[in-house]
Design a protein around this nucleic acid. Structure first.
Length: 254
DNA sequence: ATGGCAATAGAGTATTGA
């Protein structure tokens, strides 16, 4: 079983990219973030035609998440039941006995801003909810855009980013707390090439210069991690015309 | 230190992202 996550930065604009990528990478489950579409505008027919069932929750302009699957999707939950939130950032579902949580973790904008406070509160509530979810579902995967680079090696220039948004101590601690629930960063289970990132700024030729961050992650419960045999970042779609600024992360499960 | 790029809403320019 192959599972993946991709922040598409507008599913309206990126639908052709998504369909092209799925044709070359027919993963079993794909979590999307930043669909930026209300549910009535979701391209259901196109995704069904590509061979996928899908659960989604969106809103106008911002946020929006979806889970595509080749297998039946059950027990869909939209948003964190423990966190009152207008913003559509979480969708969870059970597929083939695995609990999938697709998350678009808040950006945070700048350290100590209101949005940063919201991000940390949001992460705390996620932690509390996931603790309960993991007790119910030993095989759980948390896939998404975390907007956090956990380690120095996940940042093109750690000195430049030190203490900045996506790389502040409190954000790293919040992600470490998720790991402490009993999860593993699938990407770091395996030997990887150096300087692997999942996001590059559109400006300053950041992609060409590989000035990126690894902020999109797949965390697997220890039980599920036992089944994981590979995890890669696929940079290819970042090279296409009019790309998302993020690129997919893919994990293989036995 | 600042802005640069992209998407959206909506009709010039502001907001947000990371």
């Amino acid at each position: 079983m192959k599972i993946a996550t991709w922040n598409v930065n507008s599913l309206k604009v990126r639908l052709p990219h998504l369909l092209q990528w799925l044709e070359a990478n027919p993963v079993d489950v794909l979590c999307l973030q930043e669909t930026k579409l209300t549910d009535d505008k979701f391209p259901l027919a196109e995704i069904n035609s590509a061979g996928y069932q899908v659960a989604y929750t969106g809103q106008k302009t911002y946020n929006g998440v979806a889970i595509l699957s080749k297998y039946p999707i059950t027990d869909v939950v939209k948003n964190n039941p423990r966190f009152e939130d207008e913003q559509q950032r979480i969708i969870a579902a059970t597929i083939e006995g695995v609990r999938f949580v697709c998350a678009y973790i808040p950006n945070g904008q700048a350290v100590d801003s209101d949005k940063y406070v919201y991000k940390l509160a949001w992460l705390k509530a996620l932690h509390e909810w996931l603790a309960a979810e993991m007790r119910q579902h030993p095989q759980l995967a948390l896939l998404g855009d975390y907007n956090i680079a956990p380690e120095d090696r996940d940042v093109h220039d750690p000195a430049e980013w030190e203490g900045k948004i996506h790389f502040s101590d409190k954000e790293k601690a919040a992600m470490a707390a998720l790991v402490d629930l009993g999860m593993v960063d699938a990407f770091r289970m395996f030997e990887q090439p150096e300087k692997q990132y999942s996001w590059w700024d559109y400006r300053m030729m950041a992609f060409r210069r590989n000035r990126g961050l690894r902020i999109d992650h797949i965390l697997l419960s220890t039980e599920l991690a036992k089944r994981c045999t590979a995890c890669i970042i696929d940079r290819e779609p970042r090279k296409w015309e009019q790309p998302s600024d993020h690129t997919p992360v893919v994990a293989t499960l036995d």
